[in-house]
Design a protein around this nucleic acid. Structure first.
Length: 1172
RNA sequence: GCUCGAGUGGCGGAAUUGGUAGACGCGCUGGAUUCAAAAUCCAGUGUUUUAGGACGUGCGGGUUCGAUUCCCGCCUCGAGUACCA
């Protein structure tokens, strides 16, 4: 006698697979001996899991089961399958535990994976054991962990390659920095077309060769694919780190949900924008869900339009336009005469200084005795907004005057530096040094922005509709163009907007805010003055951070104009803009627009771009929403950057010194100075000469010792290339993956995981792979050919109803309800109506009220606390008196509270004993049962989470029903991509199926194993069932429709059981069919069938049509499209023969009721429809 | 707001290119077995009904001999995104 002992069977085969390395993938070997690698390759990968300490719930393995079924299927199909698993083990959660507990994150991570004692002191099994129990066919010999130095050595290596690369926009690929140096030395950067920082000055080859090494480094940094830059970042104060855009959900951090604010910091960035177009184009070749491609397309956000440069009219007071150097106020005419006079009668000190300043030795142009507003400044550098004053003897009131003068100049945006005559004459070198240092420190606007405001627009055709401009509050030019009058208002506004968190800003889109800068720009075609405003509806990060506002054509501009009473000129023929902007492109005819009049959208766009380019004030441009990715994290638990700083410039650690190991620190928090945790490391300096990590240098020594980078890499660093690492098995010390391995495995054929990685991991990986391809490190351009998103498995929370009792009272004319503590009552689901409001006692059974009142404590202060008006009033009254007061006033309300789903038996039936054990206090509660002793809970579908007590652990399911049942049931729940609720009660169906399957092979006496070696008796029923199932299973697996193949197995086993089939010819192929889904039972049956090898590579049964050939068909006979009856007819009948057979049928006459059919539709093998 | 996806029994879901709507499983009802329960097995199970039928795939139209499937217009729910100039 042999029952289906799934626990024993599963343990046996899991052990067998591990000992025999059954699922080890084989790399190509160069020797003569060829193994699995002679077979075609297939690479199945699951998205990299983070080994959380919370353990798995039944939702987690869903994708792994699907990919495992596919991997096993491919092995049956004769492929050499690579199906690896590993851990994305760096990351924030481990570090948060480390901060709380002081344990090293490496330790907690190890425990999470391998088991041990967790942070709460509980013994946990670990991720690996949980996975093993489900019977996955992973090749564990290739496991990787991103936090292992042997692994992150190569993450650091790739970072160095990015650092040593730049993007050639002509060739459209990344090239090495060495080549860029070559170009600079031979032709400078004048003809270079590279993706780089904004505002790079041009230089010749001659100048390049003359630059100091530091200057060269500084320039190269602007071209590198990973670069250091001051950027506006998403700072999360609670997490103490910067977050990338994709790590922020609804304005709060993805992990923890903490607020995020904007902040400027010096950060490593990745120049992913260089790849924007290729990332977009590459999507076309990928077999990915459309919605996922759409998210990436939206995220990259390509838009076509033009940039237009609007000249700034710096001073709006004067009439007309004036050259930019005329900075005088309304009294200019008089003062200019005086200035001329002063120039001719300068002091000695002024004369000496001027000799040096006018020669441009300091690198910028100075003017002397120059008019600024109503002052004559001694020396002015206009481009740097820098004033030098040389003072004579200082009297008391002179000093006061000077201070006033300085403060007004400051308000105008000038930096003022003062020297005495004696200083200039006595120590000129010192004075010049001070000046040049001060100039360096002052903010210089980016080159392209000086003098003009560039804007990006997708509607250059509407340029004549511009009536104002708006800059983002953070825009660099704001402080430089704001007039003295508007300074205060502008500063207040900037301060107010910077304080608002992202979330507030997003929540409050409706409120229109902004302020006028006082400055004007000139319309490049009409020459009209255009007021420049700032407003936070303009985002600093998109386009140029400035817009040309066309209120008649853009709703946001329209709203802004209406709100601030700005003009709304109409440039659309016959468009009504009295209520809202007219944003339609298709039916637009432009008017009031000079040379664009009477043109439509596309004609006008084409013409204006030509005009912009001819006039040199703009050009056609493609803009992307995608930003360069911030790559620094102010965290401990991540890859250290292989970078040290020499003279403030980043230098790379030689690759032979990698890995640069993460140092130990005593605390995982920022230092007192606000440096990242690595600032706490005792040894975190680089000795350039000895090539080693050392302690900080002592005073006066250590010219070879330099500080190492304190930031670490973000979570996506390690996960952007791990799929290549799995390809390598033997040469992991030498290379990230060998050429042979890369050539053989190429890329991932099937990638399964959640859709939450749409714009993070999946975009960054594609970027890195394209980069690695450009530089020749890999030979594919896309990492994942086919991708499937598995849907979430939701929990079915169990809720029980309980009754709340409250007493209404009046406080400041507001009715409040004071809760009254009474014995808790719990009600079975069907006993109560679905109400959520408070109701009066007339709707409640009298005995319940009596019960409640009876339980009310003697003393009212027990219920209400001291000093409560009700309690005070009733103080000292007898209980009976109190009850009579309360009676008729009490309010009641039913609420649902969650109970642990593991206390539910069968369908929604609460196990009261377990419940009592769980909530000790509830022993005193009252329970209201239905039908005698049944107590039911209500159900609600929600996300699985501990707080909702609806988590179902796969270990428990394996224990109770077996891994094969779990695997099949997860698939049976519904389509892989769809979200669906888990219902443990339903698992009995699948479990019953496996028992039935077992029984099918155990039809011998006393249920012993039995197969018949003869061909199936009783006709070909068995073979027909088998081949029908082969066909269906194969189609289903290839379409990833795993739920329907489970159904077809059930049908097959039901049919074969009914046929009493026990023929080897049927049962042996059937075991292979089911093996990808239920591998343990299949291996066991396979062995019983007499095989000594694992079933895992047994060839998949071949479908043969001949077994399905039918000679007749049960035709449905319809009348006017409604099926009335069926009749069996031979399939080889002609249409005419079918028609006459149908017409001869007695029921036909009955349904026709004497009418003559107008038409008879016959589709042979399908249907007959009689019309009439 | 925009983009994408989905609406079918009490529940999860099936239905190939337009061709017998509700496969398979859960639950429920009845029966067998059992001292009893579990397990197992058998039968039934969309709604309605005057038992012939009528109505049924979110709603309203359309195309067709025939529509869950195709077209048009709406409604609801879910996911993503968020002032992208």
């Amino acid at each position: 006698m042999s029952k289906y002992h799934f626990n024993d069977i599963e343990a046996k085969w899991q052990k067998y697979w591990a000992e025999n390395q059954t699922f080890k993938a084989e790399n190509p070997v160069l020797s003569e001996v060829k193994g699995k690698s002679e077979k075609p390759k297939y690479y199945v990968l699951d998205m990299f899991p983070y080994p959380s300490g919370a353990g798995l719930h039944v939702g987690h393995p869903l994708g792994y089961i699907a990919s495992d079924i596919y991997a096993r299927y491919k092995r049956h199909q004769g492929f050499n399958v690579l199906h690896p698993m590993g851990y994305d083990s760096f990351g924030l959660p481990a570090e948060q535990y480390a901060i709380q507990t002081g344990q090293h994150p490496a330790e907690t991570t190890k425990v999470n994976i391998e088991g041990g004692v967790d942070k709460n002191g509980n013994e946990i099994e670990g991720y690996r054991k949980q996975l093993d129990r489900i019977g996955f066919s992973f090749d564990w010999s290739r496991e990787v962990r991103t936090s292992n130095p042997e692994y992150y050595k190569w993450t650091q290596w790739i970072f160095i390659q990015l650092f040593e690369s730049w993007y050639d926009a002509n060739l459209n690929k990344a090239r090495s920095i060495e080549e860029l140096r070559g170009i600079f030395s031979s032709e400078g950067n004048i003809h270079l077309n590279a993706v780089c920082d904004e505002g790079i000055t041009h230089f010749t080859a001659f100048e390049w060769l003359d630059f100091s090494e530091i200057k060269k480094q500084e320039i190269l940094l602007k071209y590198r694919l990973t670069y250091l830059a001051e950027t506006e970042v998403n700072w999360c104060p609670q997490l103490g780190t910067v977050l990338a855009n994709d790590e922020i959900i609804n304005g709060v951090s993805e992990r923890g949900g903490y607020p995020v604010i904007r902040k400027k910091m010096k950060q490593w960035s990745m120049r992913i924008t260089a790849y924007a177009q290729r990332l977009l184009d590459g999507l076309n070749e990928l077999d990915w869900p459309q919605s996922l491609k759409d998210s990436q397309t939206n995220w990259i956000g390509r838009s076509k339009g033009a940039t237009v440069n609007f000249p700034i009219l710096t001073f709006p007071k004067g009439e007309g336009t004036r050259p930019g150097y005329m900075t005088g106020g309304n009294n200019s005419r008089v003062l200019l005469e005086r200035a001329k006079d002063m120039r001719n009668n300068s002091t000695d000190a002024e004369a000496i200084l001027w000799e040096y300043l006018k020669s441009k030795k300091l690198g910028c142009k100075f003017r002397r005795q120059h008019l600024i507003d109503d002052f004559i400044a001694d020396f002015v550098c206009l481009s740097n907004k820098f004033v030098i004053e040389v003072d004579g003897k200082i009297h008391g009131n002179q000093k006061e005057e000077d201070e006033k003068r300085t403060s007004i100049l400051n308000e105008l945006g000038y930096k003022v530096i003062r020297f005495t005559n004696e200083e200039v004459i006595g120590n000129l070198d010192n004075v010049l040094d001070t000046i040049s240092k001060s100039i360096e420190q002052s903010d210089i606007p980016p080159l392209g922005a000086r003098g003009t405001i560039p804007v990006f627009t997708t509607r250059p055709d509407t340029i004549f509709g511009v009536s104002f401009m708006v800059l983002a509050p953070e825009h660099d030019l704001v402080s430089k163009i704001t007039t003295a009058e508007q300074k205060e208002a502008v500063e207040n506004y900037i301060e107010a907007t910077a304080k608002r968190s992202e979330r507030e800003r997003m929540a409050d889109v409706k409120t229109i805010t902004g302020v006028f800068t006082g400055a004007y720009a000139e319309h490049p075609f009409s020459g009209k003055q255009i007021p420049i405003w700032i407003g936070d509806y303009v985002l600093a990060g998109y386009g140029t951070g400035a817009v040309m506002s066309v209120p008649c054509g853009d709703q946001r501009d329209y709203d802004f104009a209406k709100h601030f009473n700005l003009p709304i000129p109409n440039i659309f023929k016959d468009a009504d803009i009295s209520e809202e902007a007219y944003s339609d492109k298709e039916n637009t005819i432009i008017t009031n627009s000079d040379f664009l009049n009477d043109l439509n959208y596309s004609e006008a766009t084409e013409k204006i771009i030509t005009a912009l380019e001819e006039k040199g004030v703009g050009e056609g441009k493609i803009n992307y929403r995608l930003r360069d990715a911030v790559f620094s994290r102010q965290r401990y638990w991540g890859e250290p950057f292989p970078i040290y700083y020499k003279d403030g410039m980043p230098q790379i650690i030689p690759t032979e010194c990698l890995p640069l190991r993460l140092p130990d620190v005593e605390k995982y928090l920022p230092t007192e100075e606000g440096e990242p945790p690595l600032g706490r490391a005792e040894k975190w300096y680089w000795n350039e000469k000895n090539k080693e990590v050392v302690s900080p240098p002592l005073e006066g020594s250590g010219e070879d010792i330099f500080p190492l980078e304190l930031n670490t890499m973000p979570g996506w660093a390690g996960s952007s290339w791990y799929f290549f690492r799995y390809m390598e098995d033997e040469k992991r010390d030498e290379v990230f993956a060998s050429k042979e391995a890369l050539n053989y495995w190429k890329n991932v054929d099937l990638y399964i995981g959640g859709s939450e990685h749409a714009t993070g991991h999946l975009l960054y990986s594609r970027f890195w792979v394209k980069f690695m391809h450009d530089r020749g490190f890999v030979n594919v351009e896309e990492p994942f050919k086919k991708l499937i998103n598995q849907g979430m498995i939701l929990g079915e929370s169990a809720k029980i109803k309980t009754l709340l009792v409250g007493l209404p009272y009046n406080e400041n004319n507001v009715t409040k309800i004071h809760p009254i503590k009474v014995k808790l009552s719990f009600y079975s689901k069907n006993l109560l109506p679905e109400t959520t409001d408070w109701f009066k006692d007339e709707n409640i059974e009298k005995n319940i009220i009596d019960q409640i009142l009876n339980d009310i404590p003697e003393s009212f202060t027990n219920i209400f606390g001291e000093n409560n008006p009700i309690a005070n009033r009733l103080k000292g009254e007898a209980k009976s008196e109190i009850i009579s007061v309360l009676k008729g006033h009490l309010l009641f309300k039913y609420i649902s509270i969650p109970v642990d789903v593991n206390m539910i038996d069968g369908v929604d039936k609460l196990n009261i004993d377990k419940f009592l054990e769980w909530r000790n206090a509830n022993k005193l509660a009252l329970y209201y049962y239905e039908n005698g002793n049944k107590f039911f809970v209500s159900r609600e579908v929600e996300k699985m989470s501990k707080s909702k007590y609806n988590v179902v652990n796969p270990d428990d399911i394996c224990e109770q029903y077996g891994a094969d049942t779990l695997r099949m049931y997860e698939m049976f729940l519904g389509p892989l991509e769809q979200a669906k609720p888990w219902n443990t009660a339903g698992i009995t169906g699948v479990h019953g199926f496996l028992k039935k399957l077992w029984k099918l092979y155990h039809s011998g006496p006393d249920e012993t194993f039995f197969v018949d070696e003869n061909p199936p008796s009783g006709g070909q029923g068995g073979l027909k069932t088998l081949h029908k199932t082969i066909k269906k299973t194969q189609e289903d697996i290839e379409n990833f429709s795993f739920n329907t193949s489970v159904s077809s197995f059930m049908i097959a086993v039901n049919e074969l059981s009914a046929q009493n089939c026990n023929s080897r010819e049927v049962l042996e192929p059937l075991a292979i069919l089911i093996s990808p889904y239920a591998p343990h039972i299949s291996e066991e049956l396979w062995q019983k069938l007499g095989h000594s090898e694992s079933i895992s590579t047994a060839p998949f049964p071949k479908f043969e049509q001949k077994f399905l050939v039918e000679s007749s068909k049960e035709y449905p006979i319809s009348f006017n499209g409604k099926m009335r009856f069926t009749m069996e007819l031979p399939l080889d009948l002609s249409k005419e023969e079918i028609e006459s057979a149908v017409m001869a049928h007695e029921k036909t006459a009955q349904y026709l009721e004497g009418r003559t059919p107008k038409k008879v539709i016959i589709v042979p093998g399908k249907i007959v429809n009689i019309v009439g």
